[in-house]
Amino acid sequence: MDLRIFTEPQQGADYDTLLTVAKASEDLGFDAFFRSDHYLKMGSVTGLPGPTDAWITLAGLARDTRRIKLGTLVSPATFRLPGPLAISVAQVDAMAGPGRVELGLGTGWFGDEHTAYGIPFPEKRFGLFEEQLEIITGLWNTPEGQTFDFKGEHYTLTDSPALPKPVTKPHPPIVIGGGGPKRTPRLAAQYADEYNTSFKSFEDSEQLFGTVREAVAANGRTPESMTYSAALVACVGRDEAEIARRAAAIGREPAELRENGLAGTPAEVVEKLGRYAGIGTQRVYMQILDLQDLDHVELIANEVMRQL
């Protein structure tokens, strides 16, 4: 099982903080460093110094790190037009080098961050999302020297040179999440390299994985062509006092985190990861909310990841 570090910078983190965590994650052997893509804090935190743009951050990390994979979980389709997003991701892909950048894409859900920064937030967004997937992959897959055209309900592209091309071939992996019973599995089977469930129970994750597997088979793909992943908040401690301290630092209770996240001693967390593996989870994004606590990341690397 791959373990990845997943951060929420809108809760309060500047670029230097993210770089410190990304470098630590790289040095400790984690597979990837991912970040959320939000422009407004959530909950009672101050959110200072304010939001950072996900793809500008990843461009910087592409140059300031060496090996670790980088991506979003997930970029809302409402934030960026699909053509410019395809250009941005392809450019970050070139800055990082082949095989290091991944695009997580979703419909967007947080209405307040849209109104706070003047971003349109239509009630129905799935059509936007579907067209963006078709356009981005269409631009990337268009042979060099040919043009790409698209006419949909939301976007029209005419005589696009479909440049630049990603250096990762055929293109950077695409991660799709969501709990829809029909449309999401269909889009995942058509466009995604990875399907992700975020903060779901064993039962819900197992059911969602099953519907996506069925869609993958119906789409004529091989089972191994899709990776199945989960994102869960992490709160790991060597003893109860350390677990309680880390839970308090993120405004949560140990008992609740044990039920809904990856919390407890390293042995407890390894056991729970084994249960997730049992339902087909191949990759886990460990959500780290206290970005000042690098000892937490080191503990997970040394006492959890090495047992996997």
Score class of each variant (00 low, 15 high):
residue 60 G to K: 13
residue 87 I to H: 10
residue 171 H to Y: 13
residue 98 P to L: 11
residue 165 K to M: 11
residue 101 V to S: 04
residue 102 E to C: 01
residue 101 V to C: 03
residue 113 E to D: 06
residue 110 F to D: 13
residue 77 A to H: 04
residue 160 S to K: 04
residue 148 F to S: 02
residue 109 W to Y: 14
residue 76 P to M: 09
residue 148 F to D: 02
residue 51 P to T: 03
residue 70 L to A: 06
residue 85 L to D: 03
residue 60 G to A: 14
residue 85 L to M: 15
residue 64 D to H: 15
residue 175 V to P: 01
residue 141 N to S: 15
residue 183 R to N: 12
residue 106 G to R: 02
residue 154 H to F: 15
residue 91 Q to Y: 04
residue 155 Y to M: 07
residue 133 L to A: 06
residue 51 P to V: 01
residue 148 F to T: 05
residue 62 A to I: 06
residue 136 I to A: 09
residue 194 E to G: 01
residue 157 L to C: 10
residue 160 S to Q: 12
residue 54 A to Q: 07
residue 88 S to F: 00
residue 194 E to Q: 12
residue 115 T to H: 11
residue 78 T to H: 01
residue 130 E to Y: 03
residue 193 D to N: 15
residue 122 P to V: 05
residue 94 A to G: 12
residue 175 V to H: 12
residue 128 L to S: 03
residue 108 G to R: 02
residue 71 G to K: 12
residue 94 A to N: 00
residue 62 A to W: 08
residue 157 L to H: 11
residue 90 A to F: 07
residue 162 A to V: 00
residue 97 G to W: 12
residue 79 F to H: 13
residue 149 D to E: 15
residue 119 I to V: 14
residue 125 R to W: 08
residue 95 M to K: 09
residue 78 T to M: 04
residue 156 T to W: 01
residue 129 F to Y: 15
residue 123 E to L: 13
residue 151 K to E: 13
residue 142 T to E: 10
residue 125 R to A: 00
residue 93 D to E: 06
residue 128 L to P: 00
residue 164 P to W: 10
residue 65 T to N: 12
residue 186 R to M: 14
residue 145 G to T: 08
residue 189 A to H: 09
residue 70 L to V: 09
residue 181 P to V: 00
residue 108 G to I: 02
residue 181 P to I: 01
residue 68 I to D: 02
residue 146 Q to C: 02
residue 49 P to S: 07
residue 168 T to G: 06
residue 131 E to N: 07
residue 152 G to R: 11
residue 163 L to C: 00
residue 168 T to Y: 08
residue 112 D to I: 06
residue 147 T to W: 03
residue 73 L to G: 03
residue 52 T to L: 13
residue 76 P to W: 08
residue 121 F to H: 14
residue 96 A to P: 06
residue 120 P to Q: 05
residue 158 T to M: 04
residue 172 P to F: 07
residue 55 W to R: 02
residue 138 G to A: 10
residue 150 F to P: 02
residue 137 T to R: 01
residue 95 M to A: 15
residue 112 D to G: 04
residue 60 G to N: 11
residue 131 E to W: 04
residue 69 K to G: 13
residue 166 P to F: 11
residue 158 T to V: 08
residue 151 K to H: 10
residue 125 R to D: 08
residue 79 F to R: 02
residue 163 L to H: 01
residue 186 R to A: 15
